[in-house]
Design a protein around this nucleic acid. Sequence first.
DNA 1: CTAGTTGCAAATGCTTTGCTTCTGC
DNA 2: GCAGAAGCAAAGCATTTGCAACTAG
Lengths: 151, 151
Amino acid sequence: MSDKNFRLQKLREKLAENHYKMTPQRKEILQIFIENEDDPHLSAEEVYEVLKKKDFDFGLATVYRNVELLSTLGLLSRVNFDDGRTRYELASTDPKVHQHHHLICLKCKKIIEFEEDLLENLESTIEKKSGFEILNHEVKFFGYCSDCRKS
Amino acid sequence: MSDKNFRLQKLREKLAENHYKMTPQRKEILQIFIENEDDPHLSAEEVYEVLKKKDFDFGLATVYRNVELLSTLGLLSRVNFDDGRTRYELASTDPKVHQHHHLICLKCKKIIEFEEDLLENLESTIEKKSGFEILNHEVKFFGYCSDCRKS
DNA sequence: CTAGTTGCAAATGCTTTGCTTCTGC
DNA sequence: GCAGAAGCAAAGCATTTGCAACTAG
C-alpha cells in the first residue's frame, strides 16, 4: 500500500474509532500534507490557500477545526516556530519513532529536518533522575545553516 | 555581588552598549523575574499583573516592549508552551551554559525544570552530519510526572 | 537638549465560537 | 433520521503600532 493510501486508511480508522465522520474536507486536508513534501510545516491559513489553488472551496474555520482534529488523532503533529501561528506536519507512521528534530537558521530562517533521534540516552537519564515518564519530545536547534556559514 | 545585583548590572551594561536607556520600568520588570523563582515562566500579561499587585502602574504595551527587549539583550529567554502566549524566563548568567530542559506533564500540565544539559554529543553529531552550526537549543519532553504516574 | 521611552487607545492578526444549514452513516 | 460537520460572520485574545507627552543621559 502506498504511503498515501496507508495514511488515508489510518484516517478512516481513527475517525471511526472516535465517532467522527469522514468528510471530503478531512480527506483533502490530510492529502495536502501528504503532497506538500517540499513545504512540510503548514499553518491552517496556508492549508486554506493551497485548497483555494486546488479549487476546493472549504471554509477557513473548517480548516482550523480539522487540522486540530487530525493532530489529536495523531495523523498530524503540531509544531511551533514562534512565528505567531500554529503549524502542523505529517506525523510519523511508525509509533515507535519519535519526532525528528528541527534545525532553525537564525539568518535565513530556513528550517532543516534532522531525521535521527538519538535522544534515548538522555531520556533514560532524565527518567531515572526525575521519575518523569517521557512519551515524546520536541527539539529545536538554533544556529547557522551551512549556506549562511559560508557568507 | 548578589545574583540580583549582578543581573541588574548586566542590564545596565547591555542597555548602554546598545544605546538604550535604563528606566524604572525596565529595572522593575527584570526584578520581577528575579524575585518570582516559584513561577519562572511569565507572560507579558502576567508580568503586568504582578506589577499591579506591587503598585507599579506601567502600561501593558510597555511590558510587552520590554520583555521582548530584555530577551534580545540576553537577560530573558523566550519560552513557548503552546498555551497561546509567549512566555519569558531568566536567562542563564553563564554564557557557556545552554538552556535547561522542560518536562511537561500531559495530565496536570505542570512544568518541571531539568537542569542538566547532556546534549553535547547529539549536537556534535548533528554539526558533523549537517554542517549546521548550533548556537542554542530548546528541548521539551512530554509525558507524566511522578505524581501523576502514581494515580 | 533630544533621542529614546512611556502610556493610551486603536488596530492587527491568528484563532475560536455561535448558529443555521447540510450530510455521512 | 439524526448526530456530527460545514460555512459564514462575529467575537475573542494576545500582541503591535501610532502618536503625543515625557525623561534619562
